[in-house]
Design a protein around this nucleic acid. Structure first.
Lengths: 345, 345
DNA sequence: ACAGGTTACGAAATCGTTCCCGTTCGGGCA
DNA sequence: TGCCCGAACGGGAACGATTTCGTAACCTGT
């Protein structure tokens, strides 16, 4: 039952009502062994009789902890941001920590204002998330307390002392190659994305090494790259690739590129997946609704967020944050675009 | 310059360093008129000499305010959620208030746990956001302090005392109709969405009344509705509509439906926009990249979020929250799919 | 010179916890 | 019996701000 009074009950109120001291109630609340069973019972009874709930600000003032972390995003509306956020929120929720959301629009000045306020609020940790924005970043800002744990989520940092969490792009490309090889495709082309994205180099490397580990050599003539992520450019490039080379599968560094590639193949009279198998990357929402439904490498966004959250929370508990980049494995979503008929069991 | 000490400076430190009392420093920080110019100067000097920043928890303990609001979402990854969030964050940032993010997954129990913690944290207000989820909701939960301001963002509430913010769906439909009529289209069809969505009734009503206000009558045979938002179903329905009726424009209650409609028209040998003009709804990211680029009614998501934020913040400042539903006007994005050749100036 | 009114500043209570100690009490043990 | 020790509980000082109120000092007009 809730309290009858208009004001919320405090520790003092509970103490008086239970006929004990404030310290004792506090001990009960924090589960200390320092209090006898019958007193403990009486206190817990009056606690939920008065509907007592601790005041987090008073507690935080004393303990110098706010039980909250901040998520600072360059772009709240970025396509990957919300899933990353969900992961972080999950981890934080489990640990009874709340997440403060900040949008910096990629502007240093806004970020600094946010950081100032966050420090004032005594947040226990910081996560910087960009969601694969192009371009690295240096240390976020000065003025941050030395011991305030922080890490980078889907964001490349030049600082070797920083901790950052990234998808295993190379491994993801490997999954795609393994799948295509296993499905019986012989000559696999690769349509990569713009070079200024950090991920593209990794995906290319993963593509190459996976081919080699399957006993094939990567034919450079089958490797193309687009200067943008647009399906239109992918269409153009794929069309000329079709005219120039022969291949029976194409792995694209994004689902958008794959869309363009599929369109080009269709317009060239080639059937997907019978003539050419196609695998994309990212597992965007539309991938499943393409025709044919697009096989793709799914980014472990929620897992990355959860990992970031729990690593940060561990750091807050005292386990030091290991620096370096942590790669979270991607997974493969096999759909019709890479399902060669007759290859199914 | 920042402080040399390892610990952050407190009000007390500043007071001692400036040779004044704690109260005086506090007054300077809060811009009270109660302090003389030369003392004020000395205090401000030592403040930024020591790099003093107020402790938000101590302040909040005293003032009973946390300068933070909570955003409780049913679905963080919902297609509209991130833009709504951005709007809220904008408004909050301007007011020096931070936003706590909560994901309830639409589960009552999780929501209640969040609310408990938020009340403990003494958040100053609550925004419940669903992003056009189907189905209304009653009062969020008991146990919330009476005077804690709250409102519903893109969420329908059955409670007449509640405050909710919604897009002006009817008006948006009106914009589409006015545009199509103004572009010279004669017989305008309407492809509506599933009936259990609250918005669909409004969009239909807006469609009807707009037609009437342009001196046309809504032909019921030209009004169809799909049981899902899928382009596939839209394709089917549009195809049969083409076979059954004649029309030279079709307004669709979502961009996905419009995608299906465009595909059906094309497969029927009809050109968009020459033979049939198409206008969608929502202004999803892909709308601009369709061929032809899709005209659509844009939802005022960021504005809705900003409105929610500033209304809530006003409520926190004491201006009472007016109950009822507030409709934020949509806007029209005219693109090629509704540009009849020869109608341009 | 004196009543009355500003102005500028400080003392101290308060917000609601946590946590370090101190005290009391009862029992085990030589 | 005397001594020591652990268990159980309370006192009270922080934590770092805000805010009320008190009080000097100074002005102002007659």
């Amino acid at each position: 039952m809730t309290s009858t009074g208009s004001q919320r009950a405090t520790l003092h109120d509970v103490a008086r009502a239970a006929g004990v001291s404030v310290s004792t109630v506090s001990k009960v609340m924090n589960g200390r062994r320092d209090v006898g069973p019958e007193v403990r019972q009486r206190v817990t009874d009056t606690i939920d009789q008065l509907g007592y709930r601790p005041n987090a600000m008073a507690r935080g003032l004393r303990t110098r902890r706010s039980d909250s972390i901040a998520l600072i995003s360059d772009d709240l509306e970025g396509i990957f941001t919300s899933s990353l956020m969900r992961g972080v929120e999950n981890a934080a929720f489990r640990a009874h920590v709340s997440v403060i959301l900040c949008n910096s629009y990629g502007q240093r000045s806004l970020e600094e204002m946010h950081l100032k306020r966050l420090v004032d609020k005594r947040v226990d940790g910081l996560i910087f998330v960009s969601g694969n924005r192009v371009g690295a970043r240096a240390e976020p800002a000065a003025e941050l307390p030395e011991d305030l744990p922080r890490l980078f989520l889907y964001e490349y940092s030049t600082d070797p002392a920083a901790t950052s969490i990234l998808p295993d792009d190379a491994g993801g490309a490997g999954l795609a190659v393994a799948h295509l090889v296993g499905s019986g495709y012989e000559r696999i082309a690769f349509l990569n994305g713009p070079e200024q994205w950090e991920a593209t180099a990794d995906r290319l490397a993963g593509f190459r090494s996976a081919l080699q580990s399957h006993g094939r050599h990567a034919d450079d003539r089958l490797i193309a790259h687009s200067d943008s992520w647009s399906p239109e450019e992918a269409y153009t490039i794929t069309s000329s690739l079709i005219a120039r080379e022969s291949f029976d599968a194409i792995f694209c560094a994004s689902d958008e590129l794959a869309m363009g590639a599929v369109a080009a193949l269709r317009d060239a009279g080639l059937d997907v997946p019978t003539d050419v198998g196609v695998v994309g990357f990212d597992d965007r929402a539309f991938a499943a609704h393409q025709r044919p439904p697009l096989s793709t490498v799914a980014l472990p966004l929620v897992e990355m967020g959860e990992m970031a959250g729990s690593m940060l929370l561990n750091a807050i508990e005292g386990i030091p944050l290991r620096s370096g980049t942590f790669r979270v494995p991607c997974s493969l979503r096999v759909r019709a675009s890479s399902a060669r008929p007759g290859e199914l069991p």
